[in-house]
Design a protein around this nucleic acid. Sequence first.
DNA 1: TAGCTTGTTCGATGTTTTACGAACAACGAA
DNA 2: TTCGTTGTTCGTAAAACATCGAACAAGCTA
Lengths: 120, 120
Amino acid sequence: MVIVKQARHPGPEEMTLVAVMGALSDPIRVGLVRVLADGRERGWGELRAPVAKSTLSHHLRVLRDAGLTRTRQEGTRCFVELRREDLNARFPGLLEAVLEVARGDDVGAHVGVADDSNRT
Amino acid sequence: MVIVKQARHPGPEEMTLVAVMGALSDPIRVGLVRVLADGRERGWGELRAPVAKSTLSHHLRVLRDAGLTRTRQEGTRCFVELRREDLNARFPGLLEAVLEVARGDDVGAHVGVADDSNRT
DNA sequence: TAGCTTGTTCGATGTTTTACGAACAACGAA
DNA sequence: TTCGTTGTTCGTAAAACATCGAACAAGCTA
């Protein structure tokens, strides 16, 4: 029996505006959200940010705790995705507005994904 | 000649998403924005928040520095207003989305205005 | 089993934020 | 000029945050 201790994710009702705004008040985290904005689930190790991995882990935790992302564990690795549906239901229009500006201003420019040469 | 040292306000181009999100990641500041959301300019002394006046001054400064509000000085007193136009131009949809949630969740509930008995 | 990979957690450090009261500066009123 | 009012700034303290490297746990792989 495989018990993979999944991290806790807040339900929509548990999400707070202040926590979400706080999560998005750091350029690296905004960059991560931008990367995930295409709706694709990304492997943790695929994510690239100019910080140590422990720090990246921290940022992903802040995003998860605020309800912005969902982290799934599979074996020894993790996959992250944006909780777009939940966010739109709980905070209508907010995510789109933020992404729009983030793209325009290129916020979190140094965050990206590895150019994974093993798929298309 | 009256030179009232006006505080510096960032122009729309100087406003950053991260600063705005940071400014809105505190319930008192969200409360202040809510109070100002009706478009009326408010006297500083009219504002009520459960913090010392030096702390309120600090919060108003954070909002001003982020570009959310404009502070005008007249004689010995100040008036604050929301920079709705500028915000909508710079961050389309953001303010409305935030206000919508803030109202629904009653964020910053302890912030308000004095019940000014000298009008209506 | 032994070792490798992957991501989290721990401990330390330096910075930023929030908060308060006291001191201050600017202005208007007496 | 001497007060009172109004809001900012200063000094300080506590908490939160970002960051790192080291240690760790869990799961594959050899």
